[in-house]
Simulated scan of single mutants.
Amino acid sequence: MLSTLQVVTTVTVGLMVGVEFAVAFIMNRILDALPEDSRQLGHAHGGRMLGALMPFWYVGSLVLSAIWAVAGRHHPGVGLVVTAAGLLIVSVVMSLLLLVPINNRNKTWTPENRPADWQKQLRRWGRYHYLRVAVIVAAFTLLVTALV
């Protein structure tokens, strides 16, 4: 049972890391290369689409890691799992305080109603996102290390 939980947790967190890494280093660069209106519309669409999915993925990853930490409390590597869960908490808090407010504005923008500083706001979101990616990559690395 614990082995199944470990695999499901590691795969879930790993897929989340992959998606967020792709957003940071691939999708945002593709969108930023588009003409201004298309760029902004693409970011808004991505914000709506991923903004609906990611809360469940982040919280689900955290819950799975917490269950693993409790279920495996007498097994080697539990400290790594607890630390990974702590980092996932940090990523959720970062999301709620830093990224979600910007995303909630961005996903409603159109070329007709976007603010003058929309590009500045998206760059700020991007900087916070890079930091969040680093945090979840660290959490994923700890989970994988706990398996070995």
Results as ranks from 00 to 15, higher is better:
P55A: 05
E36V: 12
L99G: 02
T145V: 13
V59T: 09
A66C: 13
R124N: 06
R114W: 12
A24P: 02
I89A: 14
V92N: 10
N106R: 14
I67E: 02
W109R: 09
S3A: 13
Q6F: 04
S95K: 09
M49D: 11
A116I: 08
L87D: 01
L122M: 14
L143M: 04
A22Q: 05
L143K: 00
F56D: 05
L96H: 12
P115W: 09
H74C: 00
V78E: 03
D32T: 09
H75C: 09
G46A: 14
P35Y: 07
G126I: 03
V90R: 08
N106K: 15
F56W: 13
V92I: 15
A22L: 12
L15Y: 04
H129Y: 01
S38V: 14
T12A: 13
V82E: 01
G126L: 04
M1T: 08
R29W: 05
V17A: 11
L41E: 12
A44I: 07
M16A: 14
F56L: 15
V137K: 01
V78Y: 02
G72A: 07
A33Y: 13
Q121W: 11
V8R: 00
Y128H: 15
K120R: 10
L131Y: 01
A24F: 07
G126Q: 15
I30R: 12
N113P: 04
A116P: 06
H75G: 09
V7G: 09
T108Y: 12
I89Y: 06
L2Q: 11
G51Y: 06
R73T: 04
A24G: 04
S61Q: 01
D37I: 01
L64W: 01
L143A: 00
M94V: 09
L41D: 11
V137N: 00
T83D: 06
T10N: 03
L122F: 05
A116N: 14
P101A: 11
R132Q: 12
G77A: 05
M27W: 06
D32C: 08
V7S: 12
T12P: 04
W125F: 11
S61K: 01
H129P: 00
V100R: 15
M16W: 05
L98Y: 14
E36M: 14
W57P: 03
V63N: 05
D32P: 06
D32K: 13
L87F: 11
V144Q: 03
R124I: 04
V63C: 01
E112G: 06
V23L: 09
M16R: 00
L64D: 02
N104Q: 15
T141W: 08
L99H: 05
L96T: 10
A24D: 08
L143W: 00
S38D: 13
G72N: 04
A116H: 11
